[in-house]
Design a protein around this nucleic acid. Sequence first.
DNA 1: TACGAATTGGGCCGCACGACCTATGTAGCC
DNA 2: GGCTACATAGGTCGTGCGGCCCAATTCGTA
Lengths: 211, 211
Amino acid sequence: MPDPIRLLLADDHRMLRETLKRSMLDEGFDVVGEASDGQEAVDLADELQPDVILMDVTMPEFDGVEATRRIVERRPEARIVMLTMHADQDVIASAIRAGASGYLVKDCSFDEVAATVREAISGEVSQQVAASMLREAKGLADDAESVITKREIEVLQLIADGCATPEVAEQLFISQKTVKNHLASIYAKLDARDRTQAVLQAVRMGIVRLY
Amino acid sequence: MPDPIRLLLADDHRMLRETLKRSMLDEGFDVVGEASDGQEAVDLADELQPDVILMDVTMPEFDGVEATRRIVERRPEARIVMLTMHADQDVIASAIRAGASGYLVKDCSFDEVAATVREAISGEVSQQVAASMLREAKGLADDAESVITKREIEVLQLIADGCATPEVAEQLFISQKTVKNHLASIYAKLDARDRTQAVLQAVRMGIVRLY
DNA sequence: TACGAATTGGGCCGCACGACCTATGTAGCC
DNA sequence: GGCTACATAGGTCGTGCGGCCCAATTCGTA
């Protein structure tokens, strides 16, 4: 029998982390660590050098996509499988661009999780990921256009936190006009027509957190 | 050794359902069924007569609180432990009024899950639930006020789905003015000042779904 | 160096939105 | 029969919001 695959789990919900850990151990994987936010995931990935990282998109500090970016930057050979609530095309594309090796929706079966982790090691990519990469290759502007900038994320997060335009402006030390400009840009990128839709889409994509 | 506790799991995410099932089986519980939406939970509760139901608040068809209400209506002796993402006071209160025996945030440990299920059987209630009941007993209007009506939920869901006021009115065959009246009522109940905050709060509370 | 992208701002316009008040019909309930 | 809650709808008023124009600065990078 070969050495067991060394896993790092990153998800902000302890219940899922613990039950997933038990199941993965059952399946013969070696769960070497658990992270509950993006920062911790990056730190532990550095320290433990796991074979595969199972990472949720939605996490505190910074999200799974950003964590993936930082981990891959230091260790391009790292294998990262992303987890999300919703099968969002933009998130899949972002995850792949960040360097993820696989992608799973939380509605999938546990067997799929185990299979995808093994595929990540062997270099194969799941159908979902392949399909998405194809779409990306075809050059669907949909995603090249939808690169939400850091500043735009800050604006979205503040609005999700309950701020109106003047308060967002105050918090970021910019004029209300600039906030509105950022919002207009966000609407175009997220295909939203108002702040409500923009924030909901951002929540679905995991680029904004709901406290 | 006494008979194992017969469990029904209700959560719309297959991954959590399956990993939780494995862990509960490990712990000596007998998982007799799984439901992925509110309707299925009610049906299976009827059919399988489980000792305890572990039920997520956020589910398709109708949410966990409504499912709890319907189950308890037919079988007042049913023991139901609610699961949610966020520790929202209103949701806890609603769940208890609906007849839940316990309450767990998804950030809790697996041991807490097992313990709460056992407590649900023995009739004890968790500290969280007790604290909430105390608050309710103290008569914090906060919650008597915040009974969102069916119509209000319909309005909220349509807005979450991307409808603007005229579209909500059209969908529900009412005037725009009535929609705005419902919204005003919702703002007061959810302590929100605009539709964005109202929808986000509704998502947190699990009374509205994010597709 | 020159180009594009990000970030910052301005002005203008029209409408949607939220606050506040009133009112009617229809239920359910004591 | 009254009481309360819900759903329905109207009006008015101010302003927040989004659409659409434009422009300056600072970057990284091609």
